[in-house]
Nucleic acid binder design. Structure first.
Length: 485
RNA sequence: GGCGGCAUAGCCAAGUGGUAAGGCAGCGGUCUGCAAAACCGUUAUUCACCGGUUCAAAUCCGGUUGCCGCCUCCA
């Protein structure tokens, strides 16, 4: 079995073969830094994070590039409105991006270029397009001529003649064809600008990604990703201008993630159903949110609802509870430096790793992969139930192996990254101001009552603790307590 | 108007030709003084609807209905 990815360009799942041996170049469109990221940005970032983690676990050497668009109409507009520089505004939201994505366990890319760092490259590429006859200057603006590029529209599956350019927005009359798009915009007062052969100005949106792809990954590279909505016009345009300028094939596989909707509607500021990562994390544990975002296949729309997220939380709690119980039996988990899924199946009877790989190989079927983790957790619980008390060597090694599998799978998904104790602590961090000594004292008191078979008193103490958010569990080794989550 | 996607139990969600994963919730049981947790069993004769192909279809084909996305900045 080998990795199959759905390639938007061919509209099929295809076997993935890297351009060059064990090396893979991936470019994912990042964010425009004019505001906080929402959970849709989180989903996209997490999808490619999982892809990169998985490819690395399979032994590939991945060169992952993710950009920041730091010059753009919206940034300029907002900066002007706030009376701030675009640079400072962009930096603020880049910092916020790292903070929010970091909390969600999204790893940094290998290269995280900003558009403004590649202005020279953009001018070079635009010049090449001019030289090759794909671009024309009109005043101080430069446009890409879509009619000159054979196959324009092929990626997104549309024909020039079918598109209703300007149906919702007036077409710039300087364009020779309504679908022509801007490569270089002439400078306006109070806007960032750079000198160019066509006069001072700033780049159009699409050219930055073309240039950065080319700079870090070359004229042909393996995977280009982004949200479904970027397919057109952004990716179509990126591809057209890149191939027109550099030849090559540009991206060989196009991977697009589906949207997060809220109450079945796309998030948008105008609808007011816009949920930032930051706000979501006030309600949900980061891993709960991350689990939710990978619980559905990445290409499907994902509808965000509080109930759905809390249902998943209950599942994650169950996993962590098992891991916690496991620590009591075989000690804390020692994390290996690198996660590797190659050659993991020492036990031929146990197909967990094979099945996990099979699921992930099938166009990153994270939903199926999560199902396997739950199956494995049940196995672990079963073993723990059966050995309660006396753990022999065989059971111990089976438990340790199972746990390693769960954690390896978790690491590929970017989950199970904290200790069970920490997870539960964070999950119930509603500042209950609990005094462990006080709780222990009450448990001791209840223990006395139980010894005297004073069930009324015992149950009353338990009820009091329950009101405080503490759940008791009477086991063979005595009573333990945990926070109610 | 053009293009594309989706429809699986009370809810969430895998499954793309071989007889319905998993999670949540529910019910019954084991354990427990009672609980909690865990485990076991159970919950869709059926995959929006109607036709067709096939020995065999949730899966393929045609049609119908409903929902959604893109065509404008957007993850």
């Amino acid at each position: 079995m080998a990795l199959k990815l759905y390639n938007t360009a061919t509209r099929k799942k295809q076997l993935f073969h890297p351009l060059e041996g064990g090396k893979i170049g991936i470019y994912a469109c990042g964010v425009t830094v004019y505001d906080l990221c929402h959970i849709g940005h989180a989903r996209s970032a997490i999808v490619f994070d999982v892809l990169v983690r998985y490819l690395r676990a399979r032994g590939f050497e991945v060169n992952y590039v993710r950009n920041f668009t730091d010059v753009d109409d919206k940034i300029i507009e907002r900066a002007n409105r706030l009376g701030r520089s675009t640079g400072a505004l962009a930096q603020e939201f880049i910092d916020a991006f790292y903070e929010d994505m970091g909390r969600l366990n999204v790893l940094n890319a290998d290269h995280e270029p900003r558009a403004t760092e590649h202005i020279d490259g953009m001018i070079d590429m635009i010049s090449r397009l001019m030289d090759r006859g794909y671009a024309y200057a009109e005043g101080n603006d430069v446009f890409f001529s879509v009619e000159k590029f054979k196959g324009y529209g092929r990626l997104s599956g549309r024909k020039l003649e079918d598109m209703q350019a300007g149906s919702r927005i007036a077409v710039d009359e300087k364009k020779r064809h309504p679908m022509d798009f801007v490569l270089w915009k002439s400078a306006k007062p109070d806007e960032p600008q750079w000198p160019s052969p066509w006069g001072a100005g700033r780049p159009g949106w699409h050219i930055e990604c073309s240039v950065m792809c080319n700079h870090y990954l070359g004229a042909s590279f393996d995977i280009h990703g982004g949200g479904r909505d970027l397919l057109f016009p952004h990716h179509e345009n990126e591809m057209a201008q890149s191939i027109a300028a550099m030849d090559g094939s540009f991206a060989r596989y196009w991977v697009h993630n589906g949207f997060v909707t809220v109450e079945s509607e796309k998030m948008s500021k105008s609808l007011g159903n816009f949920l930032t990562i930051r706000d979501a994390l006030k309600i949900y544990h980061p891993e709960v949110l991350r689990l939710f975002l990978v619980s559905r296949h990445y290409r499907s729309p994902l509808d965000f609802s509080k109930n759905a997220v809390f249902d998943l939380q209950a599942g994650l709690v169950r996993i962590y509870r098992s891991l916690q119980r496991l620590e009591e039996i075989i000690g804390p988990y020692e994390e290996p430096g690198n996660v590797s899924l190659s050659g993991l199946s020492e036990d031929k009877q146990d197909s967990f790793t094979e099945e996990f790989i099979k699921a992930m190989d099938d166009d990153l079927n994270t939903a199926a992969a999560i199902g396997l983790i739950f199956d494995k957790v049940r196995d672990i619980n079963k073993i723990m139930d059966s050995v309660d008390g006396a753990v022999d060597k065989a059971a111990q090694s089976r438990l340790a192996e199972s746990r390693r599998q769960v954690y390896s799978a978790g690491a590929v998904l970017g989950l199970l990254q904290v200790s069970p104790a920490l997870f539960f602590q964070h999950l119930s961090s509603d500042e209950m101001r609990l005094e462990p000594e006080e709780i222990e004292k009450m448990i001791e008191e209840r223990g006395e009552a139980r010894k005297n078979k004073d069930w009324a008193k015992s149950d009353q103490i338990r009820a009091e603790l329950k009101d405080m958010g503490v759940v008791l569990e009477d086991g063979p080794k005595g009573t333990t307590w945990r926070l109610d989550v």
